[in-house]
Nucleic acid binder design. Structure first.
Lengths: 247, 247
DNA sequence: CGAATCTTTGAATCCTCTCAAGTCTTGTGG
DNA sequence: CCACAAGACTTGAGAGGATTCAAAGATTCG
């Protein structure tokens, strides 16, 4: 309904320098886990580190896919714009995962979706030529690439099966549990939730319906306010929401 | 709710002989479009042609992924089983497309979903070693593989964006238009629709709701019965359903 | 032919949407 | 630094959809 002006420019990110793969804390979990850093030093030097503020766009659907992004910290959404102008989130990209894999297909490829940061997000920008270069000189790297693509398919399926199936209460609880999972990994006691609009685009309902469910969760003390958009959570309670009604 | 006994065995398909890639009418549209048939003759000889009757299972979620399937004729669904025993279709696999791509990851991989024929379906069964063999001796084949994986992601996104978004009327109309598209390609005047259960697993609603919408379409002459599960269609009318309410 | 399965339809209930107003936040300029 | 405007979130009420439970037609298959 609110016809969004979707072809706005991408926000300029903050450049944080060249990537330092050798000392990267998440490298062993990502696509470069098995590559020989010294052998490909020249190529890996072309990777830059950027910081995208919450709500800023990394790339826009239909623009030339000149490279892909590895999320080091934060959270991205990939959203498709529908014919009527509304958006639907088709995948979330978490730490260690990739956005814009379609850039690997060939040089003329365009991005399939628009990528937007849901939190302040740190990414490595990997030009097409880097992956392609490693691939040609190191055929075994192929397996790593496929593993990442497989992860993309799993992320898509998760949106469908977990966030778009069941009652709205269940879907919202599953989204929150995903955020809680991330927080637990980082030993944080609270989660930073996305706006109702994003919640809606992920679960396939209206903003108002999401707001009602989240209000209900707050009333039931499943969520407790702890700053702007920050909440303490009752993990067991949310888990029981997911399990209820499913028998 | 109806807890399906999901680990039933796969149906035995009808073996139709060795694949004859050289004379295959759809090869130029699939993963082998660019391979040198003579160079890889020994490997390609390991591909068998099978015919799976409607409703039969090609493979089951969690079983060892020893190879993948190319659809030559017909239609497959890939469905994930949810915690409560219900199924949700995460992808449809059409002519020229692949099922079971996860088998390429490594030898111990298991299938992520269960593959079932929605129509009588002819497939080529391609063992893991065939793709892997071509990949090692022919690095350029890599691009073809990625193209197929990209197609898988698109198919997943289509289920989410087209079949699980909008009013139920719109979703059902979009499923029908997809079937019509297939029929038009083959110059057929009618479509063979899937059962209400599958329609429901694809659109994320109940069987009854689907039945009501399809009955409405029949009353409005958007569909006209033409045999068992076969219907003549009013393409323009269905298209206007998709466009309605979306402004 | 008859049993099992699938589909259709009805009626009541529950859920989500829409429209609308009111509240809270955020960001900007004086 | 405050005030104001724009945007985001909450809440209510009524309408429209989808679900559930139930029962009656169709189909399919042995």
């Amino acid at each position: 309904m609110t016809k969004a002006p979707n072809h706005t420019k991408c926000t300029n990110p903050k450049w944080e320098g060249r990537a330092d793969c050798e000392h990267c804390p998440i490298r062993k979990f990502d696509i470069f886990a098995d590559v020989d850093l010294h052998k490909h030093e020249a190529l890996l030097n072309r990777i830059d580190l950027y910081n995208y503020a919450k709500k800023s766009k990394l790339y826009v659907e239909g623009s030339p896919a000149i490279g892909m992004y590895i999320v080091r910290k934060g959270l991205l959404k990939l959203e498709a714009t529908l014919d009527d102008g509304t958006a639907r989130i088709v995948r979330l990209v978490r730490k260690g995962e990739l956005a814009g894999v379609e850039s690997l297909l060939n040089n003329g490829q365009c991005f399939d979706q628009t990528a937007i940061a849901l939190k302040d997000t740190e990414v490595c920008r990997v030009p097409y030529e880097v992956i392609n270069g490693i691939l040609t000189s190191d055929p075994g790297f192929n397996k790593s690439v496929l593993k990442e693509w497989h992860q993309q398919i799993e992320a898509s399926d998760r949106v469908l099966v977990e966030y778009s199936t069941g009652t709205l209460r269940q879907r919202c609880a599953r989204v929150l549990l995903m955020l809680i999972d991330e927080a637990n990994y980082e030993a944080k006691t609270g989660i930073e939730i996305m706006g109702t609009e994003d919640f809606a685009a992920l679960t396939g309902v209206t903003r108002e319906s999401v707001s009602r469910v989240l209000s209900e969760f707050k009333r039931k003390k499943l969520l407790t306010k702890d700053g702007q958009n920050k909440f303490l959570f009752n993990e067991a309670g949310l888990r029981s929401i997911v399990e209820s009604n499913s028998e």
